[in-house]
């Protein structure tokens, strides 16, 4: 069991308003889980709980059998925006994780660092090709790339450090539909190739069905109650184009009926 979530409760504000209540969830190694729900239902909160940047008020979250109190290398992260460091080139963004975790501030001054960096750069170029960028893009800064390209680099950056879990928070929501389709294909391919467990938060039902092996719908039963898991759907094989419209309708019905 890679992720174990047990009776988690989260509330914000004062007086506190429940966001998540009584969440129980188990995620196996190698799953591709899409978390679906309407805006404000707490799906990003759930992601941040697993990330360790937020903590539940009740209940506990175990990743690989341990509680984590802050984000670390075991869980990679691709947010919707600001995922790349604007001051670093594409290449440096991709190698940053390995450089920073293997070499401290002063170890960077040793020759070993430069030898290792050479290896890392070769590896990064490899990734660059896999995500569909040209090698001349390596020297560019993030703001010289389109939004889709930026997110591709962000995924490569996160995968470089080989995390056990990749957490993606509305990673494609800011992209136009055409680009989005390509990105979905890329993530699906990378997931197959690396076997990384992925938790993908989205509000787009179509996207969830195309990507995940499992779709979880979060929804509130009433306004002042926290969201619960309203549906846990297993998707053994990727849905074909003809099944999707009817499935989307079904899922959205669940999501809306609960949200009043």
């Amino acid at each position: 069991m890679l992720i174990h979530i047990e009776d988690v409760f989260v509330a914000y504000g004062s007086p506190p308003r429940a966001v998540l209540a009584g969440i129980n969830l188990e995620i196996e190694e190698g799953e591709f889980v899409c978390v679906l729900g309407q805006t404000g239902c707490g799906k990003s909160t759930l992601l941040r709980l697993i990330l360790g940047s937020e903590h539940p008020m009740r209940g506990r979250i175990l990743v690989d059998g341990r509680e984590h109190h802050q984000p670390d290398r075991t869980r990679g992260y691709v947010p919707q925006k600001y995922s790349l460091f604007p001051d670093k080139t594409v290449l440096d963004n991709i190698t940053f994780g390995c450089e920073v975790s293997e070499f401290g501030l002063f170890a960077r001054l040793t020759p070993a660092f430069y030898r290792r960096r050479k290896q890392l750069r070769a590896e990064a170029f490899d990734y660059l090709q896999r995500i569909g960028l040209r090698s001349c893009d390596a020297k560019k800064y993030p703001d010289q790339l389109s939004g889709g390209m930026q997110q591709r680099v962000a995924i490569a950056q996160a995968l470089m450090t080989k995390p056990r879990i990749l957490l993606m928070d509305e990673a494609f929501s800011a992209l136009d539909p055409g680009t989005r389709r390509g990105m979905q294909q890329l993530v699906r391919d990378l997931w197959k190739a690396t076997g990384t467990t992925i938790l993908f938060v989205t509000h787009n039902t179509d996207e969830a069905l195309r990507l995940g092996t499992r779709v979880i719908v979060l929804a509130k039963e009433s306004v002042d109650q926290g969201s619960r898991i309203a549906m846990d759907l297993s998707v053994p094989a990727p849905c074909g184009d003809e099944e999707i419209p009817s499935l989307v309708r079904r899922l959205e019905l669940v999501s809306e009926s609960c949200a009043l």
Partner: peptide
């Protein structure tokens, strides 16, 4: 500095001082 940047740096294996000096300081410089 967007909190995403700091979280991202931690998930890539950076420590507190890496985040301070190699991520945030360089960005605000």
């Amino acid at each position: 500095v967007p909190p995403e940047q700091i979280v991202k740096a931690f998930t890539l294996g950076a420590g507190d001082f890496d985040v301070a000096y190699r991520v945030v300081l360089k960005q605000v410089a």
